[in-house]
Every structure is written in C-alpha cells, then in structure tokens.
C-alpha cells in the first residue's frame, strides 16, 4: 500500500511541468526573501567585522576584534549559561514529551484529535502571556502558596519568583509542543507490532525501549531536540520575566548591544556565533531528514 503510494507520488512528481526559468509566481516571494531576509542576515555578517564608532555608529573598517572580544571569559561564561539552559529545556521536553507522544500515537482516533488540539492550543497563545501565567501561579499571593498555606504546610509564602524552578517551568511549558509534534509524527508511523515481536523474543521492557522504539523513532527525537534546543538557545524573555534576569544569557547580551550600549558590530558578531550554532544543528537535522526520505522511498 505505502509502496504503491510512494510509487504514485514519484510518477506525479515526474509528471510536473519542468520549467527552464523560475515561474513568475515565485518572484514576489523570492524577491521578498532576498530583500527582507537574506540581505538583513548578510548585514549581520558584514557588521560583525566592522567596529563601533565613537557615537555608537558603525565604522566600516575590517577587524576581527569583535570575535576576539567574544572569546573573553565573561562572554564564554554567558554562552555556557545559554547552552546549559537550552540543554536542560530540550532534555526535559524530551523526557516529558516522549511519553506524551506515545500516548497520543496509541490513543483512539477521537482521543488522538483531542490530545493534538490540547498540545497545539498553547502553542498559539502569546508566549508573554504564558510566561506571565507561570508568574501568577507561583506568585507570593498565587494559588500554589494559597494552597500550601491552607493545608498549614507553610506559615510564610514561599518565594518561587525569580528562581531556577520558575524559569524551568516557563521554558518547558513554552517549548513542549515543539518536541511533542515531531515525536508524534514519528510514533504515528511506527509499526507497534515490532514491540510485540521483541517482547516475544524475550527482550525486557527496557531493552525494547532502547533497542527498538528509540532507534526507530530517532528522526522524531532529533527533530524535536533541534526544534527545542535552537530557539531556547537565543531565549531571554522567559528567563527575564521569570528569573528576574539574574543570570546573563546570550539573548540578553545581544539585546543589550542593540538597545543599550549601541555596539552593533559586537552584537552582530555574537549573533553570527548564535547563527553558526543553529546552522550546525540544522545541517545535522537535514541530513537525517534526507536519509529518512531515502529510506521511505526505497520501502
């Protein structure tokens, strides 16, 4: 069935008219991307080798000083903070999201549709609002403190605000859909009879999980990790609102260069380093995706 479908798709693909030049219809989009996406990104590259003028302008004289400066211990430490937070977020999302995706993939069609909507709805709500909701929940007069007090567990309100826990909660609830959706797509196509086969052959549940389920849903896991890790790396608004900006992150540092110190060249260099990290994980992701498609078409 699926082989037939893949074959049919290939025929349809071949039947598509092959044009010598890009059609007129793509020109507006291509022009727009060129002018408002690629040119601005190129500016980051160019400015990162310039230097800051006396009054905050950009002096176009080639130098590597911004990159040398970004290797300073202070800035390396800030990069490290961001990597730690992004890793913790991605790992937490995987641990929470994998069982969720498994439940969704094995649920009845009705339940599955319901769960999908439940996962996607917060994805569409404003993330400033969601961060604020976490602040309300954990506030000194918030419901968690009220509940603890009513059970007589605490006499003084517990200060959750501006703690690592508040930041963790805000980050995880924000990025969870990015993890669950690709995992769900992977698990939805998974042939669950393989689990049974492995069990029949005497594999323990743990072995089934790590030798069958995880390897076969690896594309979903990698996609999920890329989609949570990369945006989390540049994130600073959630830590800012929930953590009281106690730890400096790459996002704060970059924003400061643009809105406070007006050192655009240094900010550009930092942004380029961020882009390089993101591109690195994107290349990894695209490779996996290409391999998956090849395997699918061969099936």
């Amino acid at each position: 069935m699926s082989a037939w479908r893949a074959g049919w798709r290939k025929v349809a693909e071949k039947a598509r008219p092959r044009l010598r030049r890009p059609p007129l219809l793509v020109l507006p989009a291509a022009g727009w991307f060129l002018w408002f996406l690629l040119a601005p990104l190129a500016i980051i590259f160019v400015y990162s080798f310039a230097s800051k003028g006396v009054y905050g302008g950009v002096v176009m004289k080639f130098s590597l000083s911004n990159y040398v400066r970004s290797a300073d211990l202070i800035y390396l430490h800030i990069f490290w903070n961001s990597i730690k937070l992004a890793t913790l977020t991605a790992a937490s999302c995987l641990l929470i999201g994998y069982p969720m995706a498994y439940v969704m993939a094995t649920a009845s069609a009705r339940m599955r549709a319901f769960l999908l909507v439940m996962v996607v709805v917060p994805f569409w709500t404003n993330f400033v609002v969601r961060a604020y909701a976490v602040k309300v929940l954990l506030g000194e007069q918030g419901p968690v403190n009220a509940l603890l007090a009513s059970f007589g567990l605490i006499s003084e309100p517990v200060v959750f605000a501006n703690t690592a826990f508040a930041v963790w909660l805000g980050m995880v609830t924000n990025y969870l859909p990015f993890m669950v959706l690709p995992l769900y797509v992977s698990l939805e196509k998974f042939d669950f009879s393989l689990l049974e086969a492995a069990r029949d052959l005497g594999a323990s549940p743990v072995k089934v999980l790590f030798k069958v389920l995880v390897p076969l849903t690896k594309p979903g896991i990698v996609t999920g990790l890329v989609f949570t890790f990369t945006p989390a790396l540049g994130e600073f608004v959630i830590p800012d609102l929930l953590g009281g900006a106690k730890t400096m992150l790459v996002g704060n540092l970059i924003t400061e260069q643009f809105l406070k110190t007006r050192d655009w060249p240094f900010g550009s260099a930092l942004s380029l380093l961020l882009i390089l990290t993101v591109t690195g994980s994107l290349v990894l992701y695209l490779r996996m995706e290409a391999r998956r498609q090849k395997a699918e078409e061969g099936a």
Binding site: L37, I43, I44, L282
Partner: peptide
C-alpha cells in the same frame, strides 16, 4: 530559504531587520 525563518532564532531575525 522558506524554512530559514522557522529555524533562525527570532532574536537574530529581529535585530537583522532592525539594522
């Protein structure tokens, strides 16, 4: 290129357009 805005950190898109 269509996928660039999806994967690029928002902060980078924002500041590149600002400049």
């Amino acid at each position: 290129i269509v996928h660039v805005p999806l994967i690029m950190p928002e902060i980078v898109l924002g500041l590149s357009m600002l400049m």
